[in-house]
Simulated scan of single mutants.
Amino acid sequence: MSDKGRKTKRITFNLFDRGRMFTGKDRSNVNMKSMIKLFNSPQVQEMIKTGTFYGYNGHEIRQRYGMNPPDSVVINGKVVYLEPSVRTLEAYANNNGDVTHVEEFLENESGEYARIQYAAKAGGFSTAQTYKRVGLGLEPVGLYGIDYVKQMNYATNVGDGQLFDGLAIPVEQDGLVACFDSATDLTQLSASEAMIAHLLEQQIIRDYDNIHAQTELLNMHGQALDQIDVLSNQVARKERREALQAQRQHDLYSGMVGEVRSFDSVCEEADALLTESDLARMRINGETPKDKKPKPRIFKSMFRF
């Protein structure tokens, strides 16, 4: 697939307008001027220019393994490769809070799965950042990527997508708050952190298993279509060959067959030729026929039964 086919259009959403009234997480306590500066900061822009501003399918990977997760982890004795699905190609914010960004779906199983969801208008993009608490508010201190989620907090951050359910569990460590702009919030869970970690791990396993299964189905579907094309071409070639052979045979037989005449007409022509032959012989020999008109040979009587 061409690079153009894997890139989104320019997507714009406003930090001050989530596009929601009754769902999602209120961000009125966030210092948005600092968020604007963070988007345009040298650190974030350098990561974008170097192609390392990655995003994942969902926020579960960052929730469990941090904002910069490792390449692989072991879950239930199995090595799981935490491959990203999208890469941010450009992102910037103006003073009005309008954030514009372009994403590229990576050419791996996770990226292809996210691309299919995007093409189906299922889901949208969600930023992953850290804050520090300042009084009752939150001060943005780190921006780590833009993930692809089923339901995002900013309803306009979808490109061509639409809304579905998602999962987000902010985690506070070292005085920092990890926040994800997806629309659902499970901070009211009464389960322990260990149980939450276990649930996240199981969700990650299910997600990657599902992605792999979907990719296999798409590959099998593509192979089946390719096989159908091969068989169709073989049948078409066979039919063309048989039609050409039939035409050649028809032309051959047509060349072997002359004018169709009745038996009587052939006999009459033979009698006429024999009569002409007798007359010519008599003239040469100086003979005079007894009758003015010599008797014709009864040629066809030889073939009567």
Results as ranks from 00 to 15, higher is better:
M1V: 14
V99T: 04
F263A: 12
L15Q: 02
H101S: 02
V80G: 01
Y148V: 06
Q223R: 10
F180S: 00
Q247E: 10
N108A: 08
L106M: 08
R304T: 15
F22A: 12
D291E: 08
D98S: 06
K150G: 15
G166Y: 05
G175N: 01
V134W: 12
K25V: 12
Y92D: 14
V149G: 09
N94D: 15
A120K: 08
G166L: 01
R297D: 11
I146M: 10
L82R: 04
L218T: 02
D264T: 11
V79P: 00
G142F: 03
A197T: 01
Q173I: 15
G166P: 02
Y113C: 00
L186Y: 15
Y113P: 04
P170E: 07
S301P: 11
N233H: 12
Q162I: 09
V86Y: 02
G123M: 03
E83R: 06
P289R: 00
V177H: 10
P294T: 05
E193K: 12
N219E: 11
Q203L: 08
L163E: 12
G135R: 00
Y81H: 09
N233Y: 05
Y56R: 00
I228K: 14
N95W: 07
K9Q: 09
Y56F: 02
F303Y: 15
V257E: 03
R283K: 09
K37Y: 02
Y253T: 13
D174V: 06
F305W: 12
Q129M: 13
E193V: 09
C179S: 15
S182H: 05
I146E: 02
N233G: 07
F53L: 00
M67F: 07
N31T: 02
D229E: 10
N95M: 11
Q162S: 15
S192A: 04
S262W: 03
K132P: 03
I36M: 00
S41I: 01
E46I: 05
A213I: 06
V74S: 08
E107Y: 14
P170F: 02
D271V: 08
H198W: 11
S277N: 15
Q245I: 13
E60W: 05
S182F: 02
T88W: 05
D160F: 10
D147I: 01
R297G: 06
E201K: 01
L138P: 02
V86S: 05
G77D: 07
M302C: 12
F16Y: 15
K9H: 08
